[in-house]
Amino acid sequence: MHRRTWLASAVLVLALAAVAAVASASDRWMHVRIVESGEDGESVSINLPLPLAESVLQSIDCHSIKSGKVQVKLSNGEIDLPALHAALRQAQDGEYITVEGEDENVRIAKRDGRLHIRAVDDDETVNIQIDLAVLDALLSPGTDEIDVRAALHALAETKQDTELIRVEGEDETVRIWIDGRADQE
């Protein structure tokens, strides 16, 4: 009986250790990579565990940023962003906006639960993709604020690796992405 209790305790301890290890390993990371071209170009790499970014943001209290929320005027009379967001949420997948200009092409589409924005001009190409769940968290209904902390939390909950932003210009390349790795290899 005594031996059995010891065995059960050992199994319990091992199980708890395994859960803790998995919980730690499953942390999501936000990566930023900026590479300037040319001989004098610098490269910058930033790797942040999302829980760190989230809790640091929660602690910031200055000017228009409070508890991870940024005060902005979302409905400025010209564009009602919350209404636009609600309409987008209900709409079916498809390409919504295509602008083909002389200097610039812009495409906005909804596909597989994500909003895809692509803008190309003479100097650079910008690709943005954002989960609608993250967009939901970002835009709190009925308030003039952007909840960046909630968006980070939603990003942390997303188990898929996501490239949020990619800007490819003549002088530099910028990438921001989320994955489960601590490094940028």
Binding site: D27, D40, E42, V44, I46, N47, P51, L52, V56, A182
Partner: peptide, 20 residues
Amino acid sequence: QALHELGRAPNCELVRVDGP
């Protein structure tokens, strides 16, 4: 708060800047 969360994080390279 940052130090607390950093304590929980695994070993990692947080920032790297390589310039000429």
